[in-house]
Each structure stands twice: as structure tokens, then as C-alpha cells.
């Protein structure tokens, strides 16, 4: 066989399915997500629980699964699907049915100009702003907000205690967080709008994971976007910058569910979990996974058992 023809043929063969796969996948995500239109996508009674790409959200997903199983609902957990920008549309399309979410950032996802910042106002605003077919259930007592964190040395060196102090050092500091923080309100956009902060640069790393914490520790970044439940903040003596202008809204954990899946059984089971789950408990669970490297699934199951929620 002529080698040139072979190369061309092999190329065509290799590229075609890839393009088809990309095209197929993206069209389903690209069409304006309508929660009502594709209800047929999930005909069976299994509750598909999706979770974002950080450990706490996976633990929450497994907690949901465990209490629902205890109430007799069949569940499947799809862990580590991606950022909110990916998973909320998947929920709207019916690929998943239930998501552990956080009030403030969820509202900003649907309404980037939203100003509600306390839990009750957020719950109301969310109910009003959610697309048809989606429902949020009452929030848990547990909260996990984004926090902008610096090391003690950086705080002392630049005299930083609130986010407003950052503006005094515009163009000097490097900010690190997951890539979506670059384009989010609770991130680069809001820090500039609300506090007038401009950074020397932004480093795309992960969501309160080993990369962003490692970079903060080694000085690769000056400020990191972490989660308030992260036990490493206290362990390393890092300083969480205060937010006097309420850029960061309340972020209590809240189940976001497809309305057609929110039966009374489901609501009761999740309500029981939400009462038992506090910020402190959530923080402990995070630490078991992040620092003791336990499996999120097992951690969740043990916790549900220990709190008498498994029957």
C-alpha cells in the first residue's frame, strides 16, 4: 500500500469517530437546556445523583445516596463530573436527577447580578430564578463558602485582613483557584467590581485541592481560593480575608433536584440528613477524605450509620 494513502486513510478513520463523538456530546449540552422537554431521558425510578469535582461534594452525593437508599429509593452516584458550569446543565437535561449544591453560588449561576446574601433571601431568590422543572429543597445547617485565603506571612507583609486591603497592592499579588474562578462573580470578576482589586496574574489550579494548597504553601501564589470547610486552613494557620461588602453570599448546602423526582419520601429523607449535618460535621468528613485519604463513599456510609440515619 502506498504509504501516503495509508496515512491519509488512517487519519480519516481516526478523526471521524472523534468528531462524531464531540459533535454528539456537545449538541446535547449546547441546545438550550430545557428541564421539561427531556423528562423522558430518565424513565426509570433510579435517582441519579451527580457531584462536582471536589471531595466534599462527592461526600455529600454519597450521603444523599445513603439516606435515600435507607428510605427505599434506588440510587446511582456519578462522582466527579466537573464544575457547576457542566453539571447544572446536565441536571436540566435529565442526565442526572439530584445535586448537592451551595445556595449563593447556585443563585449566581442562574442570575449573575443577584445581590441576596443571607440564607432565607437566597432560598427565596433561588425559588424564583430556578428554571422550570428544577426545585431546591430546604437547606442544611452546614455551610461551605469560598474563602480567599493568604498565608500568615503574606498577611503580615502586605497588611491584609480584608478583601478591601487587596486593592492597596493592585498588580502585585498572584491569585490561584480553579479555572472557572477567573470568569465568576465570586472570583476575579467580583473582586474587581466590588473591591477594585486587580491581580498581577491568575493561576488556574484546582478547587481547594492539593494543587492550590501546595502552591499557596510554596509561595507560587499569594492568595488561594479555598473552601471554608477545609481543615488545612486552620492547620497551616492561614488567614481568611474578611468580606465586609458581602461579595461572598451564604453558601449553605442545599439539594437541587428535578421537580418530577422530588417525592415526599425523598424530601423527608433529605430533610432528616440536612438537620443532622452541621458545618463542623461536614468539615470532619472533608478531613477524613482529604487528609486521611479515605474513600468518600465509605466515609459517608459510616457517618450515616453513626447518626442513626441508615434505617
Amino acid at each position: 500500500m502506498n504509504p501516503r494513502n495509508f496515512v491519509a486513510g488512517a487519519l480519516a478513520l481516526a478523526v471521524l469517530p472523534v468528531l462524531a463523538a464531540c459533535g454528539g456530546g456537545t449538541t446535547s449540552l449546547n441546545t438550550p437546556p430545557s428541564a421539561t422537554g427531556s423528562a423522558a431521558a430518565a424513565p426509570d425510578s433510579t435517582m441519579v445523583i451527580g457531584t462536582a469535582n471536589f471531595s466534599e461534594n462527592q461526600i455529600l452525593g454519597y450521603l444523599y445516596a445513603d439516606v435515600l437508599e435507607a428510605a427505599g429509593v434506588k440510587t446511582t452516584v456519578k462522582p466527579n463530573l466537573g464544575s457547576r458550569e457542566i453539571i447544572v446543565p446536565a441536571l436540566q437535561n435529565g442526565d442526572i436527577d439530584l445535586l448537592p449544591e451551595y445556595q449563593g453560588n447556585l443563585l449566581l449561576h442562574f442570575d449573575p447580578k443577584a445581590t441576596a446574601s443571607d440564607s432565607d433571601a437566597l432560598q427565596q431568590a433561588l425559588t424564583a430564578k430556578l428554571p422550570q422543572g428544577l426545585t431546591i429543597l430546604p437547606p442544611s445547617a452546614a455551610e461551605d463558602a469560598d474563602v480567599f485565603t493568604v498565608t500568615k506571612e503574606t498577611a503580615t507583609k502586605y497588611g491584609l485582613s480584608t478583601l478591601a486591603d487587596l486593592a492597596k497592592h493592585n498588580g502585585k499579588l498572584v491569585f490561584g483557584g480553579p479555572p472557572e474562578v477567573k470568569t465568576r462573580q465570586v472570583g476575579m470578576v467580583g473582586l474587581k467590581d466590588v473591591y477594585g482589586v486587580e491581580f498581577k496574574g491568575f493561576k488556574s489550579l484546582d478547587a481547594s485541592g492539593p494543587l492550590v494548597k501546595g502552591a499557596l504553601k510554596s509561595g507560587g501564589i499569594d492568595m488561594g481560593n479555598l473552601f471554608s470547610t477545609d481543615v488545612d486552613i486552620a492547620k497551616n494557620g492561614w488567614v481568611v480575608l474578611a468580606d465586609p461588602k458581602h461579595l461572598i453570599p451564604a453558601q449553605r448546602v442545599v439539594p437541587l433536584i428535578r421537580t418530577d423526582k422530588a417525592t415526599d419520601t425523598v424530601k423527608t429523607a433529605l430533610a432528616k440528613l440536612n438537620t443532622a449535618l452541621t458545618t463542623e460535621e461536614l468539615s470532619k468528613l472533608d478531613s477524613l477524605v482529604d487528609n486521611d485519604h479515605k474513600d468518600p463513599d465509605e466515609v459517608a456510609t459510616e457517618w450515616v450509620k453513626a447518626h442513626g440515619l441508615s434505617s
Binding site: L29, S83, E85, P179, K182, L205
Partner: peptide, 29 residues
């Protein structure tokens, strides 16, 4: 390289995925 904040064409893939900008992802790929 983009996974740990550096440049290269992976930047488009990682940023596009996190920000759900599929044109950018596909462009990078």
C-alpha cells in the same frame, strides 16, 4: 501543563471545560 496553571494549547481545553465554553474546548483539541 494547563492542569498546573501553565500555558500551551491545553489552556483552552482546561479553561473551556471549567467554564463550559465548548467552542474553546473543541478549538484547543
Amino acid at each position: 501543563a494547563a492542569y498546573v496553571s501553565f500555558g500551551g494549547l491545553g489552556r483552552y481545553i482546561f479553561d473551556g471545560l471549567a467554564q463550559r465554553d465548548l467552542t474553546q474546548v473543541l478549538g484547543g483539541a
